[in-house]
């Protein structure tokens, strides 16, 4: 069984975002790029399954320019067997999904994993669009993935509860919190072996985007915090009722 993890390259989650060119694009100066946290957790789970002998190989793919290779190599360093990069600058999630779907036609994976959203565009779109374009089933809100005796068992969150499912490949799972506990830190040996692992660059077919980001802005800063005396707890509820009108 082979797993493919779709990865997005995003600014470190603690980044203070700024925009440039008349607020039309992110100011990338000084930004540290990381593997999208949810994709990293997906990768972590895939590697755990590989370590347990439940699957044979883990590959990762990213759509992006050459600068995203650093995060692909990190994926190799923490244990992925092969990395792919579709060489394209994309404008929306649809374009990414189309490029992935076209590439996927010549590939054979049993399980595809995508993080629930990227921490930059937060659209939760690429995974599901990829499955729809590739014509394979998808399961969302997946917080657990295990393979027992060749059977794929998924745990997913539903409103107010959880569900255990038996899935039949190939399928795509959109994974979220719970899929793995903590991302792996690459070891020196892993970093060394990553040097000789394949990172294949694939040229992109032309695909048109369906949406465009026209402008960005920063939200209004919040007014200052009004402090309430800890000895006067009733005052808080009076303010919430009379001033904020939320209770």
């Amino acid at each position: 069984m082979k797993i493919l993890v779709c990865m997005s390259n995003v600014p470190d989650t603690t980044t203070k975002v700024r925009f440039t060119d008349g607020n039309t694009r992110l100011d990338a100066a000084g930004i540290q790029w990381i593997i999208n946290p949810w994709d990293e957790l997906a990768l972590t789970r895939a590697l755990e399954l590989k370590d347990a002998g439940a699957i044979s190989a883990v590959e990762v793919i990213n759509v992006g320019p050459a600068l995203t290779e650093a995060t692909l190599r990190k994926a190799l360093a923490i244990g992925a067997d092969k990395a792919w990069r579709i060489d394209a600058e994309t404008a929306d999630g649809y374009q990414v999904a189309q490029l992935l779907a076209q590439w996927l036609k010549d590939q054979a994976f049993d399980i595809l994993l995508a993080g629930v959203e990227s921490s930059d565009y937060n659209s939760s779109g690429v995974g599901i669009m990829l499955a729809a374009l590739a014509g394979i089933p998808s399961v969302s809100n997946v917080s657990g993935l295990s393979i027992e005796g060749g059977q794929v068992i998924l745990k997913r969150e539903i409103e107010g509860g959880q569900q255990q499912l038996k899935a039949h490949g190939p399928f795509l799972a959109v994974v979220q919190k719970g899929i793995a506990l903590e991302p792996r830190i690459p070891s020196m040996r892993g970093i060394m072996t990553a040097r000789t692992k394949p990172l294949e660059v694939v040229p992109a077919h032309p695909v048109a985007a369906r949406t465009a980001y026209q402008a960005f802005s920063l939200p209004q800063p919040k007014g200052s915090c009004r402090m309430v005396d800890p000895e006067q707890p009733d005052e808080l509820f009076r303010l919430l009722h009379e001033e904020a009108r939320v209770i």
Binding site: I185, P186, S187, M188, R189, G190, I191, M192
Partner: peptide
């Protein structure tokens, strides 16, 4: 030790990280 920090400078020939 698992991350290889304890022998990171040692040649891989001697089981180090070769950094």
């Amino acid at each position: 030790a698992e991350l290889g920090f304890l022998g990171m400078l040692v040649d891989p020939r001697w089981d180090g990280g070769g950094m």
